[in-house]
Design a protein around this nucleic acid. Structure first.
Length: 424
RNA sequence: GGAGAGAUGGCUGAGUGGCCGAAAGCGAUCGCCUGCUAAGCGAUUGUACGCCCUUCAAAGGUGUACCGCGGGUUCGAAUCCCGCUCUCUCCGCCA
């Protein structure tokens, strides 16, 4: 959420920024609502002021056993007017709030302008794409041939976009998860947390999933609880409605979680395999940072995600999302894309973003500056470190052999009880 | 699921209708004092949103709101009433 006062005072800049993002937003309506709110607020506050001072007089008169009935009668009318104003204030604030809650974040000045994902510049590439003496297969064919990925039974148990892992694939999923958690906690300074997989509506609103993206979420029947689409939600909400001490910052958390996404509107996309599932596992890194260092933290966060692929020996490239491709809450995002030989393309495996104070304002996550005691919003960041299912895909496709077996990358062998090769 | 108790500032905790944004203590910050440390003394110490002042902001002034959340009663609510949420204790069930 953007600051209302900032929005009012910088409306032309915001219009231009939203234009670059391809967002059409009726800011005139905002300005009307905002002015209306202040008018009502002033009116009702001055009435309250009157009531407070008269009530005080009433108290003094009664103490002296004098008659206060004239004042009391007058105040009855004032209270009714206050109630009326309160109601119109409530309605106006609700409308204003509904408006600002669906305005995206303002992109950082370094974000490239563009009109679609084809305009995302590649900022770096790493690693050698493997060379095969045969036609490399896609992971779903490899997995079915090895009898370690069972899409048909996943669909039987639940439905489309659910998968049954068996044997080495199930172990690989678990190995990758543990490998990544150990890397980030052991080498990158993150504290591991384990969170609820269901959250309430307040938490979803704080990180930006609600109200605008309700249709992407799974909701629990009969309760205001939602299945998390990413651990970003519960982890960022750890400090909702709190004021942190400056010396605690930056705070680094890493969390494994299952993630649940309705994938509304993605019918026909990536219908085969593990790339797009309703349920998948992810290791997520979340940071709480001081404003002045958040962009340094974003670079480090992205490097932490890339490190996983380096350790696994999988080629990747990192792109910077352009204005049109940037997510709702983000001010700047790098996507890390792993090379998938079976698909002959790079696919997103991590997304690392700086939200600046956009989430912090919604969530009321603040910190007190040591030097002047002032309270201000933290910056929040997060990035996948990495999406586990997609990492399984990358390992399978990059390490496949002519006979259909899969070599286990060295870094994962300790987590696979020394297994070097997955064979039928 | 049943019964009971509770929710007040960074923390502990007082407060049953007006003098309460809230005692006291702890903690924190600043200053004084003191060979150092400790102790002592003094001051300060919530957040949000308006308005005034200011080129803007900060500072300052002023107003309003907030004692778990939402309603109600009343001239006036932390305090009384109703609903909800959460926490704790006991019982039942349970991985």
């Amino acid at each position: 959420m953007l600051d209302i006062k900032y929005l009012r005072q910088n409306i032309d800049l915001v219009r231009q920024k939203m234009d670059e993002r391809g967002q059409k937003i009726d800011f005139d309506r905002f300005l009307d609502l905002e002015a209306k709110r202040r008018d009502i607020l002033q009116a009702v506050e001055s009435l309250r002021n009157e009531r407070n001072s008269v009530s005080k007089q009433v108290g003094e008169l009664k103490k002296k056993k004098e008659d206060a009935s004239v004042l009391i009668e007058k105040m009855g009318d004032v209270s009714i007017r206050i109630k009326e104003y309160d109601e119109s204030l409530r309605v106006t604030e609700e409308e204003l709030n509904a408006f600002v809650m669906i305005v995206p974040n303002i992109q950082h000045e370094s974000v490239p302008k563009g009109t679609g994902s084809e305009d995302n510049p590649v900022v770096r590439t790493w690693g050698e794409k493997p060379v095969f003496s045969f036609e490399p297969k896609q992971h779903f064919d490899l997995g079915e041939n090895l009898n370690i990925l069972d899409f048909a039974r996943g669909a039987k148990i639940t439905g489309a976009r659910f998968t049954l892992y068996r044997g080495a694939a199930a172990q690989l999923e678990r190995a990758i998860t543990n490998f990544m958690l150990d890397l980030h906690t052991g080498n990158h300074g993150y504290t591991e947390v384990f969170t609820p997989f269901m959250v309430n509506a307040e938490s979803m609103t704080a990180t930006g999933q609600l109200p605008k993206f309700k249709e992407d979420l799974f909701k629990i029947e009969g309760m205001e609880y939602y299945l998390i689409p990413t651990a970003e939600v519960p982890v960022t909400n750890i400090y909702r409605d709190e004021i942190l001490e400056e010396e605690k910052l930056p705070i680094y958390f890493v969390a494994y979680s299952a993630c649940f996404r309705a994938e509304a509107g993605s019918y026909g996309k990536d219908t085969r395999g593990l790339i797009r599932q309703h349920q998948f596992n992810k290791v997520e890194m979340v940071k709480f940072s001081k404003p002045e260092s958040s962009y340094d933290e974003l670079e480090k966060l992205t490097a932490n995600a890339e490190e996983v692929l380096k350790k696994l020996g999988i080629a990747y490239r990192t792109v910077c999302l352009c204005t049109a491709d940037l997510g709702f809450s983000s001010a700047k995002t790098y996507d890390v894309e792993a090379w998938l030989p079976g698909q002959n393309t790079y696919r997103e495996i991590s997304s690392c973003s700086n939200f600046e104070d956009f989430q912090a304002r919604r969530a009321a996550i603040r910190y007190r500056r040591k030097d002047n005691g002032k309270v201000e919003f933290v910056h929040t960041l997060n990035g996948s470190g990495l999406a586990v299912g997609r990492t399984v895909v990358a390992v399978m496709e990059n390490y496949q052999q002519a006979d259909g077996s899969i070599i286990v990358p060295e870094a994962l062998r300790p987590y696979m009880r020394g297994l070097e090769r997955i064979t039928p």
